[in-house]
Computed example of a mutant assay.
Amino acid sequence: MDDLAGFLRTRRSRVDPSAVGISADSRRRVDGLRREEVAHLSGVSVDYYVRLEQGRATQPSEQVLDALARVLDLDEIERGHLYRLARQRRHRAKPPGWRPRAELLRVLDLVTGAPAMIINHRMDVVAGNRLAGLLYGRGMPGFNTARHLFLEEAERGIYADWEQCTLDVVAHLRLTAGKHPDDPRLAALIGELAIGSERFRRLWARADVRARTHGRKAYRHPLIGLLELHQENFALPDGSGAELLVLSAAPGSPAEDGLRLLGALSDGASGTSAGRVLNA
């Protein structure tokens, strides 16, 4: 699903040569740094770096990885991703099998004024509260938010910032693929999205990685209209990769009124159906 060689190539192409003291002229035919420039700046031989990018060198040392991360100007998330990719041949973790604890579901039920969901590392909705079902217009367990974004809703659907959402989701899936390289269900999802969405293929080729933590999320509900919400992602402490996701509205905002109106809808009017927990 992901590999060290491809990640190095895409990160190398992002680096501005002038930022590392290399003058660039009109004869330069590559984006970013050349292989030999990365090798020189990181203190490794050109032959060794070429073998890294060709997938022929295995188990680079911590010193080499640190040097590459510095030269390629990787942020904290990208640096961790680089180290995981380098160690994949040493340690292949089993795909996690996971179900939410009953106590966690009780916490979900306590969130009554905002849509809230539990999502696993593959972006499957494992459980959700009533407002989440009303927002998406469907039963909560049993659908995948990445598939929903790329194959079902696209830019004409519920997501007001569809293009930004696609950037975030692909970067999240790239990060997850590096953490769970042996998960066949995750690999199948990525393959399905690549076959069904040209935009997914283009974004996946960029190899961007990013963790989802918080930010603005805007929805266009067919009955309520625009809802500008704030998304908070709470990573569960059990190492499963699952998250509790809550979409809140600022006090006194039109979105707060919209959520109140959304809560007054009947489940039948919104098209939702009863459901509790998806087997993740």
Rank of each mutant, 00 (worst) to 15 (best):
F7W: 15
L8E: 05
L8H: 13
T10W: 05
R12T: 09
S13P: 04
V15I: 13
D16K: 10
D16N: 08
P17N: 07
G21R: 10
S23R: 12
S23H: 11
S23D: 13
R28T: 09
R28Q: 07
R29M: 06
V30A: 09
V30R: 04
D31Y: 07
G32F: 03
R34A: 06
R35N: 05
R35E: 07
R35P: 06
E37A: 03
E37M: 04
S42L: 09
S42Y: 03
S42K: 03
S42R: 06
S45H: 10
V46E: 08
D47E: 13
D47G: 07
Y48T: 04
Y48L: 14
Y49Q: 08
L52F: 06
T58F: 10
Q59I: 01
Q59Y: 04
Q59A: 12
P60T: 06
D66I: 02
L68I: 02
A69H: 02
D73N: 15
D73C: 05
E76R: 15
E76Y: 14
E78G: 13
A86T: 10
A86D: 08
R87T: 14
Q88H: 11
R89E: 15
H91E: 14
H91I: 14
A93V: 14
K94G: 08
P95T: 07
G97N: 04
W98H: 06
P100Q: 01
P100D: 01
E103I: 08
V107F: 10
D109E: 06
L110Q: 15
A114S: 01
R122K: 15
M123F: 10
M123Y: 15
M123D: 15
D124P: 09
A127M: 04
A127G: 10
G128C: 04
G128L: 03
N129L: 05
A132H: 01
G133R: 01
L135Q: 02
G137Y: 01
G137S: 02
G139S: 02
G139E: 00
M140T: 14
G142M: 01
G142F: 01
A146C: 02
R147W: 08
H148P: 03
R156N: 07
I158Y: 07
I158P: 01
Y159P: 06
A160Q: 10
D161K: 00
Q164R: 13
C165Y: 10
D168Y: 15
L173G: 05
R174A: 12
G178N: 03
K179V: 08
K179R: 14
H180N: 06
D183N: 07
R185I: 08
L186T: 00
I190M: 13
E192W: 00
A194G: 15
G196I: 12
S197N: 11
F200Q: 11
L203M: 07
A205N: 09
A205Y: 05
H214N: 11
H214Q: 13
G215M: 02
R216Q: 02
I224Q: 02
G225W: 10
L227R: 00
H230N: 08
H230A: 06
F234P: 01
F234W: 12
A235K: 09
A235S: 13
A242R: 01
L244G: 05
L244T: 06
L245K: 09
L245N: 13
L247H: 10
S248V: 02
A249T: 01
A249N: 03
E256L: 04
G258R: 00
L259Y: 04
R260E: 09
L262M: 04
G263A: 05
G263W: 05
S270M: 05
G275N: 07
R276Q: 08
V277Q: 05
